[in-house]
Amino acid sequence: MDGVAVADATLRYAQVSVGYHGTPVLTDVNLDLTPGQRLALIGPNGAGKSTLIKSILGLVPVLAGTSTVLGRTPSQARALIGYVPQTDSLDADFPVTAGQVVMMGRYRRIGWWRPTRSADRRRVHEALDRLGLADHARTHFGVLSGGQRQRVLLARAIAAEPRLLLLDEPFNGVDAVSQEAILSVLRDLSAVGTTLVLSTHDLTVARELADTVCVLNGRQWAVGPPDETVTADTLRRAYGGHAIELRDGRTVLVEP
């Protein structure tokens, strides 16, 4: 990796507010992530999870506070960030194969004119293979299942070799096989130093995967290790009294 300040902060948000047209959607965000850290963003619908992720990409402006991503401003860091969007924001009818979607992850490197090289094709194949989709490279994206689509999008993000990977609700509408495949790849990535930020409403997954959880709803209500943050008390405050705790200590959310 290149020498500049790789060391500590992958992402540093201090007193950050983000929003559209000067109207904040989310305030008081304080984050400090190091390489390999796994952050889960949780909160009810409309809490600002996606907005926060887009602000890390520089797609939603930071209205106040200081934000540094990989030692630069968010939009300058974009080339080093991988992003897995929600699958329902895509045009599934668009005529692309799974292999071509993953190749999109390499577009930044190959530019929009040069032909692809064998190194690019190898990366694409590896990424698909890691997610168990090597046989589907030539399959039309639109005919894949929801879980397979999500895996393809993760493969695309991996093919770009990002240092920071953002995932927006990666487990929405995903089957158990795909979820296991995604979780295992995410753990591997974290082990080699890729920082993960993912939004989810699945508290079990958040607890299982993340080493840090950030509870959001209009502002940051708590951030820290799962055991300290995913508590009935915090959740009740953030969600407005809709959390209940079960006997085995697991917290289950009931949204109104």
């Binding site: 000067g22 109207t23 959607v25 619908n45 409309g46 600002g48």
Partner: peptide, 17 residues
């Protein structure tokens, strides 16, 4: 539209088209 924007922006999703 601008006046109403803050209120609707967070959950207004654009279709791909």
């Amino acid at each position: 539209a601008r006046r109403n924007h803050g209120r609707i922006a967070s959950n207004a999703r654009r279709s791909p088209h």
